[in-house]
Amino acid sequence: MRAYTPKDDVQAKSYYTDRFYVAPQVPKQDVLSDEVFTADLEAIKAKFEVLEAYIQVEQMVVYINAKDNVDVIKLVKEELDYTQLSEMSAIDWIAKSGQFEIFYQMLSMGKRKRIRIKCFISKDEAINSVEKLFRCADWSEREMYDMFGIEVNNHPFLKRILMPYDWEGYPLLKTYPLEGDEFAAWYEVDKIFGKEARDIIGPEIRDTARVDRYDSERFGRLGHEVPKGTKITGNEPKTPLAYQEEGGVFLIDRFDEEKSVIITDRNR
């Protein structure tokens, strides 16, 4: 019987895990162990609901409700001095709970502290844009939309950014295979020549190391080149290395493999 592979997460899996292996945790500290973070968390808690908060690897992580995201980031930016949004993106938890986790990585240069504000949205939900607070979110949110298909409300220009505009599927979803889906495999062929050319052109060869010794048209026969279309017997003489026309070029010597030197000493 073939081994069962889950369809909701097609990424690489460890082929062996000890039955009794319990993964250790990166230690989490209480927010109270740091004065600056305690004050920041109090300020957020005073106005918004905080689901969870802890310190991990010297940065505070705060979980909030997704509907508060703009207001919390506004508060954090304007009152708590977190003046830069370093990064934001999403994590796909659809296989586990049907949700996306969205994180905003913020930096306070005055306090030399970094916090991460996180929230969950369900698969079909949209998130509000923070582009009005940080211009850099314009591109980050586009990237998030491009990679996960998460819709962003009030975004000025929500279009794909890295993938082509007419792409189908969202590459960073766990359901999207690494080698791409059928659309990805035939994208260029469909677009340039049409679907009817698929049979003529054939699938792409993904093995980069493949050398066809009977192929007289590509690079497989380096050093033993033959004219295009020649039938290959396997006894072709070695092509001498020569990079110039027979007559030579004015002022430039013809390259001669025999006379060439390999320089090994930099200080020569």
Partner: peptide
């Protein structure tokens, strides 16, 4: 197999802040 957890580590690359955010679930990937 790193422990379960997440980090965001910024470094000053020649171009600016180069950050790696890693979310590990205790697996080898």
């Amino acid at each position: 197999r790193p422990p379960v957890g997440e980090v965001y580590i910024p470094t000053e690359s020649p171009k600016g802040e180069l950050g790696y955010y890693i979310n590990s679930q205790g697996g080898p990937y």
